[in-house]
Simulated assay, not measured.
Amino acid sequence: MLQLVVSLGVGLATVLAVCAGLVVQFKSPRPRPRDESENYYLCIDEKHERQRLGDLRSEATVDLSIVVPAYNEEERLPVLLDDVRRYVAERRRREPRFSYELLIMDDGSRDKTLEVAMAHARKHGVRELKAVRHVVNRGKGGAVTQGVMSAQGRFVLFCDADGATRFSDIDALLARAQAAARGGLAIAIGSRNNQALSGTVVERSHVRAFLQWGFHTYVTILGVRGVRDTQCGFKLFSREAARRIFYNMHVERFIFDVEILLLARYQRIPLVEVPVNWHEVAGSKMSIVRDSIQMALDLLAVRLNYLLGRWKIAHYPEATASPGASAR
């Protein structure tokens, strides 16, 4: 009997090891290098319409960088752009010297996403808008990573293109991040799960709520604990924290949020979760069944790569002064 139990145990362990090896081998993400054209952005500067992107390794030149991953968002993007414009106008009434940049990362869209962004910039004179076109679709995580690595802000925010989160909630994230900062390191993430305590409003379908609960349970089982909402597309980083996170990123699809949290935990970066106002917006690019399965496999691959030591966390590059640049 004992021999049978041992044999079953060895057999089960072998099967699990083989499955883990297959997941790591075939599901581990392999980000592609930047195409040369992706080092440039479009803006409404009349003399230099096409300019070279910034570098996260340089010193900050503006107060805030806003990174927006956008794939086929010609219909939903204007809502967010108007929300950002209103926020900036109000912020500048309080702080006339407030400076920012708005990076629209067009992730290989097949519609007029980039044209819509540029039309908005021209109509409202938004010289801070920088539109980048990827030659092929990377995925949301890849678009965010490329945008953050080009950011010039003292703080860097990424947010979804659909305008589901009220943009002015960034003030709460900034306040909490500054309070929690240690050694210039801080991350504040929006959460749709603390509304009862905060008085914020979340409008979500029952299907989405159930899937979020299931995913949160799965994430907890795989060891990512202490965060109630890993997937909210509204996350803020100090510049130093962004360097430590995004130069170590591997994931380019939906599960990239969890890798961010893993990297923050491994490096002991202070992280706070802040309730935000959120409502569900039609037009999501996610397939509920297909992408849920894909995310589950991707998360397992990410966790195994870190547990097995295949992915090393490199020390982030120190800031270097850019010609003529000065931090605000």
Rank of each mutant, 00 (worst) to 15 (best):
L103Q: 02
M105S: 05
D106I: 02
G108M: 08
R110T: 13
D111S: 07
D111Q: 06
T113S: 05
T113Q: 09
L114E: 11
E115D: 15
V116D: 08
A117S: 09
M118T: 11
H120P: 05
H120T: 09
H120M: 12
A121G: 13
A121E: 12
R122H: 14
R122S: 14
R122F: 10
R122V: 15
K123Q: 15
H124P: 08
H124S: 11
H124V: 13
G125I: 14
V126S: 13
V126D: 15
R127H: 15
E128Q: 13
L129C: 15
L129E: 14
V132N: 04
V132Y: 05
V132H: 02
R133P: 00
R133M: 07
R133H: 13
V135K: 14
V135G: 10
V135I: 15
N137G: 12
G139P: 02
G139A: 05
G141P: 05
G141T: 08
G141L: 06
V144I: 09
V144G: 01
Q146T: 10
Q146H: 11
V148H: 01
V148D: 04
M149P: 03
M149A: 05
S150N: 10
A151R: 00
G153I: 10
F155S: 08
F158D: 06
C159W: 00
A161H: 04
G163M: 07
R166P: 09
R166Q: 13
R166D: 14
F167M: 06
D169V: 06
I170Q: 01
I170D: 02
D171F: 08
A172M: 08
A172H: 10
A172P: 06
A172K: 12
L174P: 04
R176H: 12
R176F: 04
A177V: 04
Q178H: 11
A179D: 14
A180M: 06
A181N: 04
A181H: 03
R182H: 12
R182G: 07
G184T: 05
L185I: 02
A186D: 03
I187F: 02
I187A: 03
I187R: 01
A188D: 07
A188F: 01
G190D: 00
S191H: 03
S191M: 02
N193W: 01
N194K: 11
N194V: 01
Q195R: 13
Q195G: 11
Q195L: 06
A196Q: 13
A196R: 09
S198T: 10
G199S: 08
G199T: 07
T200K: 15
T200L: 08
T200V: 14
V202G: 00
R204A: 08
S205P: 08
H206M: 14
H206G: 12
H206T: 15
V207Y: 12
V207T: 13
V207K: 13
R208M: 07
R208K: 09
F210H: 07
L211C: 05
L211E: 05
Q212W: 00
